[in-house]
């Protein structure tokens, strides 16, 4: 057992213990943005499950795919994907920003500035997106 190194402590029962308010993430803009960032995962998860559902049908054959493809033309699904896309883009941008905090590469003695790390990520992102788009357009 470790020895107690601090003799005097304030008495717990004689202090005021504050509580986090329910709506703490509305108190600061930065907290709200944080919660939005975490919320992106819900939209991405739903999209992934839907996409997996579509892929399942595609792998069953073209007929199976056409059977379910129609329902995704509904306004509801279009709206969902529109919102999901906005959230997904927000996820990408915020993710690159956080990545720049973790990845601090050095070239020789020179530290690559964070904005450049973000810029490199965005470049890679655009390239990857373009590559996927190519598959749809060219092939």
């Amino acid at each position: 057992m470790e020895k107690e190194m601090i003799v005097n402590r304030p008495d717990n029962s004689k202090m005021y213990h504050p509580h986090m308010p329910t709506a703490w993430w509305f108190r600061k803009w930065s907290y709200f943005l944080f919660m939005l960032r975490e919320l992106t995962s819900v939209f991405i998860a739903v999209f992934l499950v839907v996409y997996l559902f579509q892929i399942y049908h595609i792998t069953q054959g073209a007929d199976a795919y056409w059977e379910i493809a129609g329902q995704f033309r509904s306004g509801g699904w279009i709206a969902f994907h529109g919102v999901a896309l906005i959230f997904a883009i927000y996820h990408s941008l915020s993710w690159f920003k956080t990545a720049a905090v973790i990845l601090t590469p050095r070239v020789g003695g020179w530290m690559v500035p964070p904005w450049m790390v973000v810029a490199l990520h965005i470049a890679a992102w655009l390239a990857a997106s373009a590559a996927v788009l190519m598959l749809y357009v060219l092939i």
Binding site: I44, A88, I89, H91, S129, V132
Partner: peptide, 10 residues
Amino acid sequence: AAMLVPIHIA
């Protein structure tokens, strides 16, 4: 997800 999900949604 950051790199690839947006284009697939789109």
